[in-house]
Amino acid sequence: MTHAASAITTTGLTKLFGKQAAVDGIDLQVPYGAVYGFLGPNGSGKTTTIRMLLGLVHASAGEIEVLGEPIPGGLSRILPRVGSLVEGPAFHPYLSGRANLARLDAADRFADPSTSRTRIDAALERVDLLGAARKRYRAYSLGMRQRLAIAAALLTPRDLLVLDEPTNGLDPQGTREVRSLIASLTGEGATILVSSHLLSEVEQICSHLGILRQGRLVAQGTVDEVRSGSRAVAEVLTASPEEAATVLRGLGLADVTVTTTGVRAAPDGVDPERIVAALVGAGVGVRGFAVQSPSLEDLFVSLTGEGFDVSN
């Protein structure tokens, strides 16, 4: 067994459904011990990627290595060390929460039947479901279902947790609990890949980010690395935007755009003082001037497209 530097590595991972590439040549790098936020709008290929990591879907091209073993070759050795939540919870509706976990535990050939009950209780306790353990799954609320699925991922100690939209359907309280659960799991040394279409849900807990758009990885790295990949924007408020735009172009600023209230451009290292001096020197009346670094949220939106699929 080789000792890989990353818990998850993919190279050129691709999945075609017919002619459509759901996942298009992505190179994931999830370091050991990271909380990796796997972000992208709905339909960007997050779940398909996760299904390939877990061997549910065969890759059309590319390579996958999880915990140092190739996938799908090493699946039977690797999956016992991986807890997963894929595309929402799914359980037998007429069985109780506990019976559903017992069913999954019975399916695990590495799980010790003699400790089954204590492990199930511990997992239920961890997601605060012990009180509802005897209720039938169909009577569970969406949040309880989600928590049961997380409990299922925690039945045995795991080195890697792959959580696909774990906060989906949870109320704000539940979302916070999931965040603190993830934090405590990282504290125990687990690597976590958590996907979401909402940056705000994961940005506080992630050490790394990967942003997916239409099956392609458009940004990846530590949170700071991803953030520094974004350009600051200089905004000039003025009554004569055309003249201002000419001055800014003359200074070598990129992406100069005229707006209704003035001009916007990317300073790209040109000092703000020089920009203002040049504007004033050219006789452009400056009503306001600001250089702003975009928030992670703005960056996310700019990378993934705004609102309902403008990119299609």
């Binding site: 299904r51 894929v86 595309e87 037998h92 399916a107 050939r109």
Partner: peptide
């Protein structure tokens, strides 16, 4: 149909088994 297949397979249960 109810989605439990994906969770059985990721336990993992070998498909042949």
């Amino acid at each position: 149909n109810i989605g439990t297949l994906r969770y059985l397979l990721t336990v993992p249960v070998d498909r042949t088994r």
